[in-house]
Amino acid sequence: MRQYEVATAAILMLIAAVAMFDTRAGALPDPSGTAPGGLGPGFYPFWAAALIFVTGGAVAYRALVSALPREGVFKDRRSIAAVVTLIVPVIVATSSLAWTGFYAMTAAYMGFFMLSVGRYRWYWAGAAAVLLPAAIYAAFELGFRVPLPKSLLYPAVPF
């Protein structure tokens, strides 16, 4: 547990440090200078980041000195596997969105999930993979005229 606790706090502190570095120019109120009203755009993000940095340091320190058990952040190996099998397809699907378009991605993801996790028969998975994007297409593109991302094949293929 301890190393995860410290690592989490450290990552948040790193983010805070980057933000503080980026906005360091406006960190102090500047009543006479160029910033209108005395507070520049950097003031607020700088101190928000400083808040993270300080409290993050305290959290990390307490994790180091307290008697937390070393292990036990995950329940077991299977629960790690569960999380990974869920998130990896999501990342693959969303990062390919710009090429596949929303509808093909939905069909592939829905079908894949029902086959691999649900162990449905192929025709059920296939039906869902066609019907869900079709229903969304009907509601968004045709009904409310809200365009969702299209594939690279668009406009040769209508989605």
Partner: peptide, 19 residues
């Protein structure tokens, strides 16, 4: 499956009627 499909088709039909 049936519940979801019905719900979605209803949505689609409602939407389709507007414009």
């Amino acid at each position: 499956v049936a519940v979801l499909a019905t719900a979605l088709i209803t949505l689609a039909a409602c939407g389709g009627g507007t414009a």
